[in-house]
Design a protein around this nucleic acid. Structure first.
Length: 594
RNA sequence: GCGCCCGUAGCUCAACCGGAUAGAGCAUCGGCCUUCUAAGCCGAGGGUUGUGAGUUCGAGUCUCGCCGGGCGCGCCA
């Protein structure tokens, strides 16, 4: 028997071409050789456009060059024929046995099939979600979570050493607003009615936290409301929507916070931390249920506590990238291609969010990751030049930072766009979405689009348990295979044996197509990793399932001839394995029966 | 106004450093279950890839203009 498992057909063909190339044109021997899988079956199993690529540099007719290359190709036991087609493509057709080599590979590798060394163990940090812990995650966060988790899985499978990180914005004004919102609701519970500001957090979860505090501390945190009200400027009329009114409301809220801090003393920190802990726990629980896990929850506050923010700003200052204007410190980001310079330290001495973000990114780089990837909402795209600029100014190689932008997801129900105003607290939470359509459909729907493409999330479709729903289509293929293997009741080992010995019996066009699809999986993983595009996997799985369903309907698997039956079982068992491996990357389950 | 992203079948979207006749699903129409799960399969129709030029053996893909849509342009986070 031939050493089937050790042969990777694509590499094999590349080697053949490389050899031919060096004898035809020594000076071009290092040119990249790309093998494609032609869409058209008549074009063989692999196609190479090498002759077309090199024709001009070598000043030769592409077809003649292709002819030359073909005549220099070493003989291979796996190649049936080599043809020159079209403008100068070299098309390879493989012997049926060569196309089935992959079955042994899949069955032996199992859940490891498709694993790649592309990343070569290089360290990579992936930061995603990083939502403010000021309320439940909504459907927009869900897309970032699903995309990030799938991408992390793909990159890890492709050989990177991946660290998944959530940046916790626990230091800013937003957290203070959450704390004041909680305290005001608490006061309401105890009969101290202070008008609840329209720009505070309106959600029911705030009342829930207030109730928790009441349960634990009774009325201990009640302070006379009049004292707070007396020192806070009045709110403008609710109808007013002009910039001045908006500004007044923000001032009012800030004043409330300041007064509350004074009134509550240490209890302010208690309310603040309670709210933070609650929301963070809720967020973590939400994500975990969604199959999204993080290795590190990185606190923004810790950057201030360790002095890193001040240090980063000082370093920028020492490198003369800062200047003072109107009492504030500005980073000259225009030097690095930004539209305008940015404030890092305000007139009141407080650092901006940008300053802590510089510190955070500096910290990421200092931790030594080879590559740092941020997943941001597309509305943050204008933020990229200033962060990269700051890293450059600090003497870092900004190219180590990549930013993947995720567009918004828009929910549709009954063909109608669903409103998602966070202000009114009517937004759909990730939790609601998950519970409505289920984790599997949720994860899959989020990643079946290119991430930088707007996503229309059709709730009705996601819930439908029918052929219209791609998740079920793939899971159904898996369940069917389980059912067949169940019926057969043989051992896994015998299938590996069958794949090695009888795979040559598989010559039906659908069998060849299915095997070719299976063989493509490792390439899809690498492509998805390179392009940061887990949606490749989603599309691939749909194609794989389609190939299987077509085969299943056309041919019976459990046939009387034992060798043919075993070979077919090996083929579908390999299909099942690849479905599992692919679905695992997307965080979608594979039930054995449906 | 400036910057970034997008425009592909009736709808939602693919298209692997530019490759051969631009592909799927849904929807529409016509077929397939006494046999391993019909949540399936087979077939048909449906396109000047917004538009005009350019680059080259070759452009949905790259460059420029125009048209249309989204987002961003705070001492907010």
């Amino acid at each position: 028997m031939l050493p089937a498992m050790s042969v990777d057909i694509k590499n094999h063909l590349t080697d053949l071409l490389r050899a031919a190339l060096s004898s035809v044109a020594q000076q071009e021997a290092d040119s990249p050789i790309i093998l494609e899988r032609p869409k058209e079956a008549a074009h063989g199993d692999f196609a190479c456009n090498l002759a077309l690529q090199l024709a001009r540099r070598l000043q030769r007719n592409p077809r003649q060059l292709a002819q030359l290359l073909v005549s220099e190709l070493p003989v291979s036991p796996w190649v049936e024929k080599t043809e020159i087609a079209g403008a100068g493509f070299i098309n390879f057709s493989l012997k049926p046995a060569a196309k089935m080599l992959v079955l042994s590979t899949v069955l032996e590798a199992g859940s490891g099939f498709g694993r790649s060394k592309l990343g070569a163990g290089r360290s990579l940090q992936l930061e995603f979600v990083s939502a403010n812990p000021t309320g439940p995650l909504h459907v927009g966060h869900g897309r970032g979570a699903a995309y990030g988790a799938s991408l992390a899985a793909v990159l890890a499978f492709a050989g990177w050493d991946v660290t998944r990180e959530f940046y916790v914005n626990d230091a800013g004004r937003q957290m203070d607003i959450l704390a004041i919102s909680t305290w005001l609701r608490y006061l309401e519970e105890h009969g101290e009615r202070i008008p609840f500001p329209p720009n505070a957090y309106q959600g029911v979860y705030v009342r829930e936290m207030a109730a928790q505090i009441s349960t634990a501390h009774g009325a201990r945190l009640v302070r006379p409301a009049a004292a707070v009200l007396a020192e806070t400027p009045g709110l403008p009329e609710p109808e007013r929507d002009d910039p001045a009114a908006k500004s007044l409301r923000e001032q009012h809220l800030d004043a409330l916070i300041e007064n509350a801090k004074k009134l509550l003393g240490n209890d302010w920190a208690y309310v603040h931390d309670h709210a933070l802990t609650e929301q963070l726990a809720d967020c973590r629980d939400d994500l975990e249920t969604f199959g999204v896990a993080f290795d590190i929850w990185f606190s923004e506050k810790s950057l201030f506590d360790t002095g890193l923010v001040a240090r980063a700003v000082a370093r920028l200052e020492a490198a003369e990238h800062l200047y003072e204007q109107d009492g504030a410190k500005w980073f000259r980001s225009t030097t690095f291609g930004d539209e305008k310079d940015r404030v890092v330290q305000r007139e009141n001495g407080l650092y901006t969010y940008f300053a802590s973000d510089i510190a955070y990114h500096l910290n990421k780089f200092e931790r030594g990751f080879d590559t740092v990837i941020n997943i941001w909402g597309a509305d943050h795209h204008g933020y990229i030049p200033r962060v990269k600029g700051a890293l450059q100014a600090l003497g870092e190689d900004a190219a180590r930072l990549q930013v993947a932008l995720v567009q918004f997801a828009v929910l549709y129900r009954g063909g109608q766009k669903m409103p998602m105003s966070t202000r009114a607290g009517e937004f759909v939470t990730l939790r609601q979405l998950r519970e409505e359509v289920g984790n599997d459909a949720c994860r899959f729907f989020y990643v079946q689009r290119k991430s930088d493409q707007h996503l229309d999330f059709d709730l009705d479709l996601a819930k439908r348990q029918s052929n219209e729903n791609p998740v079920f289509y793939i899971q159904y293929a898996h369940a069917r295979i389980c059912s067949v293997l169940n019926e057969w009741q043989g051992s896994e080992e015998s299938l590996i044996e069958a794949a090695g010995e009888h795979a040559g019996l598989l010559v039906h066009p659908r069998e060849l197509a299915l095997a070719a699809r299976i063989a493509e999986f490792p390439e899809m993983v690498e492509a998805a990793a390179n392009e940061l595009a887990p949606h490749f996997i989603a599309f691939y799985l749909k194609d794989l399932a389609a190939d299987f369903h077509g085969y299943y309907n056309a041919e019976r698997i459990l046939v009387a001839e034992p060798d043919l039956c075993a070979a077919r079982l090996a083929l579908v068992a390999a299909t099942r394995q690849v479905i599992r491996n692919g679905m695992a990357l997307l965080g979608v389950s594979c039930p054995a029966s449906m």
